[in-house]
Amino acid sequence: MREDYTYVVLADDDEDDRLFFTEAFEELKMKTKVDIYKDGVDLMNALNQSDSVLPNILFLDLNMPMKSGLECLKEIKDNQRFKDIAIAIYSTSASEEDIEDTFVNGANIYIKKPNNFNNLKKILSDVVTMNWQYHTSGLNKDNFLLRL
């Protein structure tokens, strides 16, 4: 993690969700840099550039056209270069199946998109300020899903 700011990346095909996400960070006024990709293909293309700057935290929507969040997650976990990226699943559904799949494939946290903007802000600030090392070492299926 760089000293001056936290680099946050979101891949989500939903325009409204992208808007909420960027607005939330704007209002939070934290030391962050936010980049947005509109689907999994765009995201992976950007990451796979050899000179790309890797994000500290990657927010992945699951239900995306062409390349789903789960596929992106698998590709990232297969690549040693990306091993330091903390991956937060950011999805509308919180079905047992999705939670299980992403946990098994090495995601760090699972966030169910909230239905209230203030809750969103709180979640994002919690996630950015989270001590990832501490969280990852004690990660299990019960604390994988972020609860408010």
């Binding site: 969700d17 239900n63 909230p114």
Partner: peptide, 21 residues
């Protein structure tokens, strides 16, 4: 029901919270 119906509803609720704020 779990995904597609919830998504627009969630957005409606989020937009309402934006309006209120």
């Amino acid at each position: 029901a779990s995904h597609d119906l919830q998504e627009p509803l969630r957005k409606i609720q989020t937009f309402i919270s934006r309006l209120e704020d």
